[in-house]
């Protein structure tokens, strides 16, 4: 079942903490060399799933194979083949860059002959040349994250699990981090990376949307954007936004605040754009432009999550 071409396979994976179901019957199939984004709000169950795939948490039920090994029966074999960056920064703050790399290189038994080369690679990849002897706690967030990635790939794992590697990092450093991820992927590394930044979804080959422990949808960003929202999507400039969302409830399929605008999915049998304007103005709201927009991933995500329908894996 582990499937030779599949790097990560999960079937009915669940994790229960006491009475709370943090991950609910999750199915996942990730091919070698794919970059898959694991996207969902805080508390969705991303970290819990990644930890089960790394063999750090025991699944309550279901199965998972990573690099062809059963995570429950053979966690040590899994560990030989993966790199993991936990959500919380977890290198040694009171050691230097070089000492951290040497430590993790030693723990993973990187051959002595290759060590210098790999360390140089990790240092230059993280852009830390000249900072090898700095204590880690003196580094800024972006550098720390790249160093953590460097430590996680010293042993050249074919599969990488990155848990919110870009959270709390400034946008420029985030972009740089994604460049690194793509460099690794082009070398054939399979990467499952979690994030709660919707815009990062665009960097992934495929994304898995997860909410309240359930996989809501999975597919490429393009595929997901094409998903039928059930009607046309319009963007409405109006104020106040909160009252407008309430006012539209029942008249449209979906209404949600997007920045300083409102996005609404129009019901094909309900009011159209101009009728919506009247409806809002009757309630004393200021309404500006209303225009059709093409759905973003966020629209799709909002629709999938609040629609409450049991959407299953696409493609």
């Amino acid at each position: 079942m582990s499937g030779e071409s599949k790097a990560i396979v999960a079937q009915g994976l669940s994790k229960r903490f006491q009475s709370f179901l943090a991950v609910d019957n999750l199915d996942l199939e990730i091919a070698k060399g794919e970059v898959v984004g694991f996207i969902g709000p805080n508390g969705a169950g991303k970290s819990t799933t990644l930890r089960m795939l790394c063999g750090l948490l025991r699944p309550s039920s279901g199965k998972a194979h990573v690099a062809g090994y059963d995570v429950e029966k053979d966690p040590e074999a899994v560990r030989e083949h993966i790199g993991y960056m936990s959500q919380k920064f977890s290198l040694y703050n009171d050691l230097t860059v070089r000492e951290n790399l040497r430590f993790f290189g030693g723990i993973y038994r990187v051959p002595k002959k290759e060590f210098a080369g790999r360390m140089n690679f990790a240092v230059s990849m993280a852009g830390l040349e000249g900072r090898e002897d700095m204590l880690v706690h003196t580094l800024a967030g972006g550098w720390k994250q790249r160093l953590a990635l460097g430590c996680a790939i010293l042993h050249r794992p074919p599969i990488l699990f990155l848990d919110e590697p870009t959270s709390g990092v400034e946008p420029e450093a985030r972009r740089r981090f994604w460049d690194l991820i793509h460099d690794l992927a082009s070398d054939g590394v399979t990467i499952l990376v979690s994030t709660h930044y919707m815009d990062e979804a665009e960097y992934c080959n495929r994304i898995a949307l997860i909410n309240r422990g359930r996989l809501v949808a999975m597919g490429s960003p393009g595929e997901l954007r094409l998903r039928d929202l059930g009607g046309k999507l319009v963007e409405i400039a109006c104020s106040p936004l909160g009252a407008a969302v309430n006012a539209l409830a029942g008249s449209v399929i979906e209404a949600a605040i997007f920045g300083d605008r409102l996005h609404a999915v129009l019901d094909p049998n309900g009011p159209d754009g101009e009728e919506i304007r009247k409806l809002l103005e009757e309630k004393g709201m200021n309404v500006g432009a209303i225009r059709m927009v093409s759905p973003s991933l966020e629209d799709v995500f909002v629709r999938l999550v609040s629609g409450g329908k049991e959407e299953r894996v696409l493609s």
């Binding site: 790394c54 750090l56 993790f104």
Partner: peptide
């Protein structure tokens, strides 16, 4: 508590 143990546990040590 610091989280370094998690990083060590995920290694083959």
């Amino acid at each position: 508590e610091v989280g370094t143990l998690e990083q060590i546990m995920v290694s083959p040590i």
